[in-house]
Structures are given as C-alpha cells and as structure tokens.
C-alpha cells in the first residue's frame, strides 16, 4: 500500500472559452420521451455557455447511442460530456467507458438522472418533469465545467478469499475459487460445515441425497 497522498496537479479548471461540452438527452424509448419532449431539453441545453453540441438519442446506452457520442467527441472536439438519461447506478460505468474509448478522461463525463428521478417519479406532472429535467441537465453541465481529469488509484491485491458460511453456497464458492488456484479461508460458526443442506433428506426435484 502506498502511504502517500495525491498532489493537486492541475489546479485550475478549464478556461470557459476552451470548454466544448457535448450534451446527450436520451429518450429511453418512451420511458423518458413518453413524459417529456427530449428535444426541448436539447434546445435549452444548446443555449448554455460552454455547450458545443447538444443532441437527442433514442437509447444513449445502445451501441448506436454510444457510437454517436464517440463520433461526436472527435467531430466536434468535445472535451466534456453530459448524458441526461438514467441513474448513475445503472449506466455511469457504461458512459465513462464510452468517452474513454474516444480518448476522453472518464471523469469528464457527468450524468443527469432524468429517468428514475424525473420522468418515472413525475409521470402525471409533465410540465413539472420537463422543468426539472432542464434544471438537472443544466446542473450537470455546470458541474462538468469544473471537473478535472482523474486517474484511477491502483491498489495491490492480497490473493486470498474469505468465505463466510459453510453452507451449500459457501462451499461451492470456496471450491470454485480453490480450483482457480486461489487460497480460501472458509469460516463456519457451527461445529461442522454443511449448513441447512446437510440436515435435509433427499432434495427436489431429482430426489438425490443432500450430502
């Protein structure tokens, strides 16, 4: 483990006039476009300072959507990307990888969650949802203007697994790991491994023995 801290290397945020942000507003089929017109968000985003290009896409996460973003990064010389689509828990890794493939640092991509936290939650308030989608997109654009390229931190790995629980799931996991030449500590709080499975008689649907 490296006992050192990260120096703040590039302290200054990018100059406003050098910003070239690409904004992509996803329809997600009808999940987003069924509640708000994505085109209006695109039109609005296009007016914000630093935005070089704004576009809508049927499915941003699909191969075609990702290709559009990658091509645009080159075509328009984009140096920041905002994807207004779903939750970061769903597709942040997807779009980080997507911009990285086009040569952009993955931490220069920001998502606005206009699906889970907008159209899905405000399906019966279309006007409110549209205002919110615009605000969330603008918020992501303002944040992305100040983002810095970052590198992942590399840490060493201890080549040993701990499996907690010696039932059928734990035993199987331990065996699979050991067969890949990975040492395993299999911990069981009872006096024997086997768990509930060892207490069973025959098992369904094949009626074979449990142990």
């Amino acid at each position: 483990m490296t006992e050192k801290s990260i120096e703040i290397t590039s302290q200054e945020p990018i100059n406003e006039k050098d910003l070239r942000i690409g904004v992509y507003v996803c329809h997600c089929g009808s999940n987003i476009a069924g509640v708000i017109p994505p085109g209006e968000v695109v039109e609005f985003a296009g007016k914000l300072p630093g935005v070089a290009h704004a576009a809508e896409t049927m499915y941003a996460c699909a191969d075609s959507g990702q290709r559009l973003i990658k091509d645009d990064i080159k075509k328009y010389g984009l140096n920041r990307v905002v994807v207004s689509a779903c939750s970061v828990r769903m597709h942040e890794p997807t779009f980080r990888a997507c911009v990285a493939e086009a040569g952009l640092n993955p931490f220069l991509m920001e998502m606005a969650n206009i699906r889970e936290q907008c159209t899905w939650a405000h399906g019966h308030d279309r006007e409110g949802a549209l205002e919110k989608a615009k605000d969330l997109t603008a918020s992501a654009i303002s944040k992305v203007s100040f983002l810095q390229p970052l590198d992942m931190i590399k840490v060493p790995v201890s080549k040993k697994a701990l499996v907690i629980g010696g039932g059928v799931a734990g035993i199987n996991a331990a065996l699979d790991l050991a067969e890949q030449n990975i040492p395993v500590v299999l911990v069981e709080k009872e006096a024997t491994i086997g768990g509930v499975m060892a207490q069973l008689n025959k098992t369904f649907p094949t009626m074979d023995c449990s142990i």
Partner: peptide
C-alpha cells in the same frame, strides 16, 4: 472442501 488443499476450513469460527 475439506480435501482441497487450498481451502482452510475453520469451523466454530466467527468473523
């Protein structure tokens, strides 16, 4: 699991 040399079975053990 008990026979596999790379698995250390620790029964009666808690985390």
């Amino acid at each position: 699991a008990a026979r596999q040399p790379l698995i250390q079975v620790k029964a009666f053990t808690e985390v």
